[in-house]
């Protein structure tokens, strides 16, 4: 169990660190990506693009390092739920947009694949939140 948790922490934390670094290097593109989702008032796009990647980075890094690991897993779980809702409504509305999940590294139209990746991360992060010992 400890080995499993360790591996899950590396995977989930690593993905979040990776995604965050890409966004931090191109906040303008990230702002455009989240704008495409048509979910929040335009005024919030830049503030969210400036700040959100750092929460991803911090939580991902702490999860990999194993410091406050349950709290960081909890943050990532919540983020995964938010992303799930965002991607789900984009698919339901048939929006022709990029996911923006990993910047332009995974370009292409947002689709079921993104939903499945996020769902898998959600399950793993949820597991780490509930089953992991501090």
């Amino acid at each position: 169990m400890r080995l499993l948790n360790f591996l899950l922490r590396l995977v989930v934390g690593g993905v979040f660190v990776f995604a965050a670094v890409i966004k931090i290097f191109d906040p303008l593109a990230f702002a455009a990506d989240i704008g495409n989702y048509r979910l929040m008032p335009r005024e919030l796009l830049h503030p969210v693009a400036i700040l959100l990647p750092w929460v991803e980075l911090g939580a991902g890094l702490l999860l990999v390092l194993g410091f406050w690991r349950r709290a960081s897993a909890l943050i990532i779980t919540v983020l995964c739920v938010v992303f799930l809702v965002a991607i789900g409504q984009a698919l339901a509305r048939g929006l022709d947009i990029h996911c923006g999940c990993f910047g332009t590294v995974a370009a292409g139209r947002v689709g079921l694949r993104n939903l499945l990746i996020d769902g898998a991360l959600l399950v793993m992060a949820g597991w780490l939140t509930w089953k992991q010992k501090e």
Binding site: I50, L51, W54, V55, A59, L62, W68, I75
Partner: peptide, 10 residues
Amino acid sequence: IIVACLLLGA
């Protein structure tokens, strides 16, 4: 964690 990250980002 969230507050620290937000500050860092800002």
